[in-house]
């Protein structure tokens, strides 16, 4: 599995604040890779270092096998950092032509029109961007990142400011780029459900450090628990001991799936009436809140 991005002990300090704290991360080629973390976790700092916009305080990183700011490596990468802005007097088509020229390409209208169509901006191609909504600017930003036909694309909050249909279209586009076009997509998002739906692998950052990394399925199945609605609660809790956590009128049992039926049998044999038993998983949101120590939301059920 070759890597498109590798960071080694990457540290960025702003005064006394460590935005990144010795981050070592390997992002493999192919698929959609999500970088998650609460505000101030270091996601944007990481992206900005990778794009050569800021220099790290310590450590180093490579992108597409080359050093940061290496023009050869940078030419194989496209990016959109937050909601992009453009000179307001230019049309969407002119913006893409301008960026094509800036990146050493010709002003080929076939290419610009193809990407405008891909992001759903064909009808707005000749409109000045000063009248664009945030969602339209985001789409144009993705087209701008793709205009050089890169192998790696970095998207910071690509669905920020978009309405639900726009988010759905962006999600489809991202997956299509990764799975139909063969690009590696690295994205940061606060919308955890979106990340779960679109990403193949995720890294969770907190306070500039990597706290979890793996495929979405790995992260979301490791915390699976058996939710038992039963009576009497006290007796069941005593039987389960540290393996059980009282959750309202139910108990969440930390047991592997294979041991689930045996546990139910044992409880019934000891006089516990079980009203309902079902597997509840941890979605990415739960993992995120657990790992980052953020405010916990209610447990989310999933079909298990």
């Amino acid at each position: 599995m070759s890597a498109v991005i590798e960071t080694r002990n990457l540290t960025k300090t702003y005064g006394t604040v460590k935005a990144l704290d010795g981050l070592s991360l390997t992002i493999p080629k192919g698929g959609v890779y999500g970088v998650l973390g609460p505000n101030g976790a270091g996601k944007s700092t990481l992206f900005r270092i990778l794009l050569g916009l800021i220099a790290p305080t310590e450590g180093d990183a490579s992108v597409m096998g080359g050093a940061i700011r290496d023009p050869k490596a940078m030419r194989r990468m496209g990016s959109m950092i937050e909601t992009p802005r453009y000179p307001p007097y230019m049309s969407a088509r002119q913006v893409l032509t301008w960026l094509s020229l800036a990146h050493g390409l010709t002003s080929d209208t076939t290419r610009t029109d193809r990407w405008l169509e891909r992001v759903g901006l064909t009808e707005a191609a000749d409109r000045r961007v000063r009248g664009f909504s945030v969602g339209m600017l985001q789409r144009l930003g993705v087209a701008a990142a793709l205009i050089t036909e890169p192998e790696l694309i970095i998207l910071d909050e690509p669905t920020s400011g978009m309405d639900p249909p726009g988010i759905q279209e962006m999600r489809a586009l991202i997956r299509s780029l990764a799975h139909d076009d063969g690009l590696t997509v690295v994205l940061a998002s606060h919308q955890l459900l979106e990340v779960q739906r679109v990403c193949d692998r995720v890294a969770i950052l907190n306070k500039g450090k990597l706290v979890r990394e793996g495929t979405v399925s790995e992260l979301t199945t490791t915390g699976e628990r058996l939710r038992l609605s039963l009576t009497p609660l006290d007796k069941a809790s005593t039987i389960l001991g540290e393996r059980g956590t009282v959750d309202g009128t139910a108990i969440l049992a930390n047991v592997p799936r294979a041991e689930g039926p045996a546990l139910i049998r044992a409880l019934v044999e000891q006089g516990i009436d079980i009203d309902e038993a079902r597997w509840v998983g941890t979605d990415l949101e739960s993992v995120f809140f657990t790992e980052t120590g953020s405010i916990q939301t209610p447990e989310h059920d999933h079909v298990g």
Partner: peptide, 17 residues
């Protein structure tokens, strides 16, 4: 100053010195 005003440095600075 246009690239500072329109926040467009980040779009063009990655691929050139």
């Amino acid at each position: 100053a246009g690239d500072y005003r329109w926040e467009t440095w980040r779009l063009i600075s990655a691929r050139n010195t």
